[in-house]
């Protein structure tokens, strides 16, 4: 039965080549798919029927947009289907953190821009620092090894 659950989960995983190895301290660029509203298919169908009944066929659902979020990975939680990573960046002087599931369709692509030398699994200490203190030493030679 545990094997059945594992099979069910592995069927939903993204292909290994689409998912880079993400580690704390990495600077990543995450492309996020944005869907208009949280419309479930059943409701969407009813909406389409209602619009059709009114004769307003011109109203269409907006196409999905993509957004990019670039920042430092301050932690990776979980594994497999439930693996999540937290990205922190400074937006107009305010610290912003977003946590993503690695294998969800919301995350269209993950690009590792830079890897850094860190000695912690969770870089929460970056939250208390500003400016120059948030710099991390780049990990040059290991970039080739990982890729």
């Amino acid at each position: 039965m545990q094997q059945l659950i594992r099979d069910f989960e592995s069927a939903q995983l993204k292909a290994a080549e689409d998912v880079p190895v993400i580690k704390p301290g990495d600077t990543v660029r995450v492309k996020i798919n944005l869907y208009e509203g949280r419309i479930l298919p059943v409701i969407a169908m009813k909406k389409i029927q209602r619009i059709a009944a009114k004769g307003k066929s011109g109203r269409e659902q907006k196409a999905e947009r993509q957004q990019t979020f670039e920042g430092t990975v301050i932690g990776v939680q979980g594994s497999g289907l439930r693996q999540k990573f937290t990205v922190r960046k400074l937006a107009s002087g305010v610290g912003v953190e977003k946590t993503f599931f690695v294998h969800t369709t919301r995350v269209a692509a993950i690009e590792v821009v830079r890897r850094s030398h860190v000695r912690r699994a969770k870089l929460y200490y970056l939250r208390d620092r500003v400016g120059k203190a948030t710099r991390l030493r780049e990990k040059r030679e290991n970039v080739a090894k990982v890729d």
Partner: peptide, 14 residues
């Protein structure tokens, strides 16, 4: 009953 797990819906929510 096999057990509980997570899956993602059409919009990628868990």
């Amino acid at each position: 009953k096999i057990g509980m797990t997570t899956m993602f819906d059409e919009q990628g929510f868990s």
